[in-house]
Amino acid sequence: MAEQQHTTSTEHPAEGGHGGFPPFQSNTYASQLVWLAIAFVLLFVLMSKWALPRVGSAIENRQKRIDDDIAEAGKLKEQSDAAVAAYEKALADARANAQAIANETRDKQAAEAEARRKTLEDELNVKLTEAEKTIAATKQSAMSNVRGIAEDATRAIVERLIGKAPNDQAVTAAVADALKR
């Protein structure tokens, strides 16, 4: 390398601005500028047309994928929320339904029981009145029998005491009078 530099410095005898300090050697400026321009423009074109879109698209794809995944997750969450809501609604419906059925059954049974009780009561009432009627009739007949027996007994007692059959009318009146008391 030292040799190369040696030959270089011999190839370039003191031209304009050929100082000792390399950055201020103006005879090297033209070469540096030309190659700088070529290299920079080349790099700029490579970057803006090729490399940067590639890197950018890689980043964008990832971002898009993340956004998509988040959106998908949101959609799934919505679905599960809807499912939960539907389930809860079904549960509430079933509960209400059960309640309604229970109420209905209870009402029906109460009504049936009431009806049965009523018919039974009616039947009992009918029996009661019949029984009362029978009792009244029996009592009536018994009473009329008592009158006849009492009249017969009275007639017989009076005939024994006085030896002569009493007047029927008087006996009947006397028995009625006694029964009244």
Partner: peptide, 11 residues
């Protein structure tokens, strides 16, 4: 003179 130099090489 326009020359290809070490500077250009590293660019």
């Amino acid at each position: 003179e326009i020359a290809f130099t070490n500077s250009a090489m590293f660019m």
